[in-house]
Design a protein around this nucleic acid. Structure first.
Length: 182
DNA sequence: GAAATGATTGCC
DNA sequence: GCAATCATTTCT
């Protein structure tokens, strides 16, 4: 992907979510240490979807979801874990893709990012990274993965929600060990 | 102002 | 099976 091409993020979350699979998410933490992982599991959240935080209008928390596609949306869940989302679509539409799991290139850290809370802990993503544009100069960005084998995409119901369970808006790489749930 | 809730995780 | 733990939301 061309990093300058912000239009990539302007498609709907349901279209973007499967396309993010296989891409590498990169973060440079406060100590200047770079942590990366290949995205292997995502979920789409749309404006008219009861499970989506933005479905009942703008609030202080969901403000980044109403910015243009390509922003980050990070929030605290259950008082102890952060979840990282990539905002999608046009400005003011209120949609995003939750990143649920990463495959870590360094084998000694296998499975440490297999889950939305775990990957934020591993990459050291906190609310400090909320509402920033994904770009290398912001220390948080996406890259195409090198030497990636072809893979098959599975779509399945989303995890941990009470409404909208019927929608198959979770996408993951088939047979990948770092996916959080089968 | 008070109460409920949650896009999770790990331990019992 | 369920406790941990707290910012935000949704009631009074």
């Amino acid at each position: 992907m061309n990093l300058a091409d912000r239009n990539f993020f302007k498609q709907n979350a349901t279209e973007l979510a499967p396309k993010l699979l296989g891409m590498t998410l990169c973060h440079v933490n406060s100590k200047g240490l770079r942590k990366t992982g290949i995205i292997v599991e995502t979920e789409a959240y749309m404006p008219d979807d009861p499970a989506c935080h933005a479905s009942r209008g703008k609030t202080k928390r969901t403000l980044p979801m109403f910015e243009e596609g390509g922003m980050s949306y990070v929030y605290l869940i259950y008082g102890m874990y952060y979840c990282f989302n990539i905002v999608s679509g046009e400005k003011d539409s209120g949609q995003a893709v939750l990143i649920r799991a990463l495959e870590i290139p360094d084998h000694s850290h296998a499975k440490e990012a297999a889950g939305p809370g775990k990957l934020c802990r591993y990459l050291e993503i906190t609310k400090e990274q909320n509402g920033i544009l994904l770009a290398k100069e912001n220390n948080l960005w996406l890259e195409n993965s090198v030497k990636l084998q072809p893979f098959e995409i599975i779509s399945a119901p989303r995890i941990g929600i009470s409404a909208g369970k019927e929608k198959l808006w979770r996408f993951y790489i088939k047979n990948n060990n770092s996916v959080s749930k089968k």
